[in-house]
């Protein structure tokens, strides 16, 4: 019997496919998320929109709050640690968190290196803007990849850019001849073995989810149609005027992402989505997607 193997880590990511992972900051929100049909909750002290507003250093959440949420729901609980902060990750693993998000939403702890995720029994999800970044994270042991998008904005444009970039680069690799793969690996800044694997299989070796700016059922469907296998919704639910209805609508939109009749039905009657911030108008130093290397 073996625990913490790569197939066990990817196995949980497989079980989360076709679902919605929701950011929650307390027990009440976690229950609303679970009741609405979320497949998992991300326990954090402040949702990305508030991290932006609050400023200062954003760190791993208080363990007590994570444990309370774990106690309140039966679905898997995720939590975020800072990029490169393996001690925070060790604490989260000890707490029994089901998935760790090494996240650009928090203030990075290391500007050169990410966590060596193969040292852990608990699986990691990491953000990416392109295929090279995704493959570097998988090379370090990530069991799930998500787009970074631009968290806390409610603007889908960056998530779309990142998903199109990843899927487009996968399609390009699948068309290359073997001789061209080493140069492709060099240009991508990605491990050669993973580049070779993608050229052969035409997909990522781990589930590929979307995050960063999803605020409506239509946003969720868009990301699924572009190739995402599940969606993370951060600020989009609890910054809206109708979290419960919106959470349920987004869950239905993900299951039926190819059915416009369902999408129209669940979009009707929703109150205002989060007002949001245009990602294009953000000063460069405020863009979270730029964190990570």
């Amino acid at each position: 019997m073996k625990k913490g193997t790569f197939e066990v880590k990817v196995g949980l990511a497989e079980m989360l496919k076709g679902g919605v992972i929701m950011d929650v900051t307390n027990v009440d929100q976690a229950r609303i998320a679970e009741d609405a049909g979320a497949v998992s909750v991300m326990a954090l002290e402040r949702i990305p929109a508030d991290i932006r507003a609050f400023g200062g250093i954003a760190r791993m959440s208080n363990p007590e709050m994570i444990l309370k949420i774990k106690e309140a729901v039966s679905i898997p609980v995720m939590a975020k640690c800072r990029i490169g902060h393996f001690a925070e990750a060790q604490i989260l693993q000890e707490l029994g968190v089901d998935f760790i998000d090494e996240s650009e939403v928090l203030t990075p702890a290391d500007e050169e290196n990410h966590i060596w995720k193969k040292d852990f029994h608990v699986p990691f999800v990491c953000g990416c803007r392109n295929l090279g970044e995704a493959l570097r994270r998988i090379g370090e042991g990530a069991a799930m990849i998500r787009t970074k998008g631009e968290p806390g904005t409610g603007d889908i444009v960056e998530a779309v850019r990142h998903m199109r970039m990843v899927m487009g680069e996968i399609r390009r690799l699948a068309n290359l001849d073997h001789t061209e793969l080493m140069a492709a690996a060099k240009h991508l800044g990605a491990p050669f073995e993973l580049v070779e694997w993608i050229a052969k299989n035409g997909k990522l070796p781990v589930p590929n989810f979307a995050a960063g700016g999803i605020a409506t059922p239509a946003d969720a469907s868009l990301m699924m149609q572009l190739g995402a296998e599940s969606v993370f919704v951060g600020s989009g639910i609890f910054k809206s005027d109708d979290p419960k209805q919106r959470a349920e609508a987004i869950v239905k939109a993900v299951t039926h992402y190819l059915d416009p009749a369902v999408l129209a039905e669940v979009s009707k009657g929703l109150k205002d989505a989060m007002s949001g911030i245009a990602a294009a108008g953000l000063p460069e130093e405020e863009k979270m997607a730029k964190r990570g290397w």
């Binding site: 625990k3 913490g4 066990v8 196995g11 949980l12 998935f99």
Partner: peptide, 14 residues
Amino acid sequence: TRNAYGSQKESFVD
């Protein structure tokens, strides 16, 4: 019984 073995770190292969 659901989740009878604990959290994800107790997940295993055999």
